[in-house]
């Protein structure tokens, strides 16, 4: 098992830092999957912990100038690591304005992801800061739990509004209620609703647009006004929204009535899938 990679371009480094910050906000611990052409950050919570899952994917060649890896075997040319996501984002914090960043799989008494940052200094000599992030290597037999989630067929698919607005609305709703209903139709309407003994609050987003339907899609017969709704744990939704610091290039919300909501986001060339199950 071997892995070493290097980033030299400042824009790539910034982008990678942003991705890792987002992951740190979305998941406390996550799995990093390394394959010859892709990196994935994976979260698959047990149902008891709320059952949220995340699948973040980036093409390695869009970030790294050098990328060498050797998986556990020739036919399973992949590596699965578990790490505390904040450790990675904290290590990358020192990498702002760095000349280069190297990431390497090492074994220093225990397995580590070693991040070395080459910093510029006033004198010509360069400084190198090294972070050893403890990791756990995930054995082959557990990989099957960490495969790309199957995107279920949604009842309604709709583009998300400006996430900042959505975040402040959900933040205030969180002060009042623990549960939230998200509902949307094929007419571009999306509503966020809370209801307690004291107060009912509904925020209406209009004209958001729906992506074109895939052919032979069952929801073609759906009345465009008809709402599909999901009851959610409001903290789960808020956690997802807090993690979005930059507005994505594409943001889609897929609702499977009373089952789950699936957010499909694209940040330039990084895709993020986030699944929140419905409250039963």
């Amino acid at each position: 098992m071997k892995f070493r990679a290097k980033i030299v371009d400042a824009a790539c480094l910034n982008h990678f830092t942003r991705v890792s910050n987002m992951i740190a906000k979305l998941a406390k611990t996550c799995t990093l999957r390394i394959s010859p052409d892709k990196l994935n950050f994976i979260l698959s919570d047990k149902l008891a912990n709320g059952g949220v899952s995340m699948w973040c994917e980036l093409e390695q060649e869009n970030f790294f100038s050098e990328f060498q890896m050797e998986g556990v075997s020739a036919e399973n040319n992949e590596i699965y690591l578990e790490l505390t996501s904040e450790n990675l984002s904290r290590a990358l914090k020192t990498a702002q304005n760095a000349r280069a960043l190297k990431i390497k799989l090492t074994n220093k008494h225990f397995p580590c992801l070693t991040v070395s940052v080459e910093l510029l200094s006033v004198s010509s000599s360069s400084r190198i800061v090294t972070h050893d992030i403890p990791i756990k290597v995930i054995p082959r037999k557990l990989w099957k739990d960490l495969q790309e989630p199957v995107v279920p067929h949604p009842d309604v698919s709709i583009y998300l509004p400006v996430l900042k607005t959505m975040k402040s609305v959900v933040e205030k709703m969180r002060n009042i209620s623990n549960h939230l209903v998200i509902e949307a139709n094929l007419n571009g309407d999306l509503n966020l609703k809370i209801e307690t003994e004291l107060v009912c609050v509904t925020t209406h987003f209009k004209d958001l647009g729906n992506p074109p339907l895939a052919s032979e899609n069952a929801s073609q017969d759906r009345n465009p006004e008809q709402m599909a709704e999901v009851h959610l744990d409001i903290r789960k939704l808020l956690q997802f929204l807090v993690g979005q610091q930059v507005n994505p290039t594409k943001a889609l919300c897929n609702i499977v009535s009373n089952k789950m909501v699936h957010f499909d986001l694209l940040h330039e060339d990084v895709s993020l899938q986030y699944f929140i199950p419905a409250l039963s």
């Binding site: 607005t165 609305v169 009912c200 609050v201 509904t202 209406h204 987003f205």
Partner: peptide, 12 residues
């Protein structure tokens, strides 16, 4: 209302 987004609150 802000920027075309409308919130309706019914406070008892």
């Amino acid at each position: 209302e802000e920027g075309g987004v409308v919130t309706v609150c019914k406070i008892n």
